[in-house]
Amino acid sequence: MKKLNILAAGAAFTFAAVGAAQAQTSPTLEATKQRGQVNCIVSEATAGFSSPDDKGVWRGIDVDVCRAVSSAIFGSPDKVKFIPTTSKVRFTALQSGEGDILSRNTTWTLVRDVNLGFEFTGVTFYDGQGFMVRKSLGVKSAKELDGASVCVSTGTTTELNLADYFRANNMKYNGVVIEGADAIIKAYESGRCDVYTTDKSGLAGDRTKLSAPDEHMILPETISKEPLGPSVRHGDQAWGDIVRWVQYAMIEAEEYGVTSANVDDLKANSTNPVHRRLLGVEGDLGKMLGLSNDWAYNVIKQVGNYGESYERNVGPSTRVNIPREGSPNALWTKGGLIYAIPVR
């Protein structure tokens, strides 16, 4: 077992576990079980990723990751304590142990993975910076934006990416730097700038806030890579494994056509070995993770597969409306990047 660099608290468990059993032990899992809930750090409010609905129930892609982990552990998607954080305090909230999973539209980068002492468990959403312009401007590509005024939010990587992109393409721009997403969109709408730039996930949602969304378009270029995904603390790999494989199980379920609607039927009747392994009819996959064997069944039954989560939270049927077809967030079989490592 690969548990050598576990921290002091986990050391005792580790020595007991090595060679003793097939099942991993995870201090975080133990603590979570004892507490009866998963502590999940989410965004204080990002449309489609995490926000409270009319009843105060948290919804979103990031939220679904934590609900899925809760289903895998407890067999119920509601044993989660959501800890809303602003982007400024999210990392310390994970480091200080206030939360067990950081699922807050956070970009996976080397520095964050290594230097902050986190372990990213996968990518839930491939985001990237894009541009929105008025259709009346007659621009079809970001390469034609020389001399444009660009609305951008302060102190983010968005601002740096913008500068890099224009410099690399030998173009000039006037930056209109504004704090706060709502203020920026109003500035763009009132004509203070020709172009509005932020991550595409944000652009799609922000477009719906305009009084005439159809008069604006998102340019095809994506000028940065922003793979968003959940992370956990270094030092408890077994916990990281649980979060990672819960994510893969959701993707694999979509790849093999398992949905929350047909999961009961497939569990009872399917002869496909992939289905049988995934749903815990065969093998001991759950036990190896320190969970029950129907962990993935519970996840799919209660939260759904990746595609269901995507459609429900950011798909074209929602106001956020980020089309999945042709984007990196399509399944790999459909030309996207969503790919599950085999759950076997």
């Binding site: 204080e44 926000s51 409270p52 602003t86 949602g205 719906t208 106001r319 956020v320």
Partner: peptide, 26 residues
């Protein structure tokens, strides 16, 4: 206190208009 993730009146309202259903009603 909104900055540390405690939802007072301001935080609650801000979170609400980021709900996909009510997007853009800032």
């Amino acid at each position: 206190i909104y900055i540390i993730g405690i939802f007072d009146l301001l935080g609650m309202v801000q979170a609400s208009f980021r709900d996909t259903k009510w997007l853009g009603l800032a």
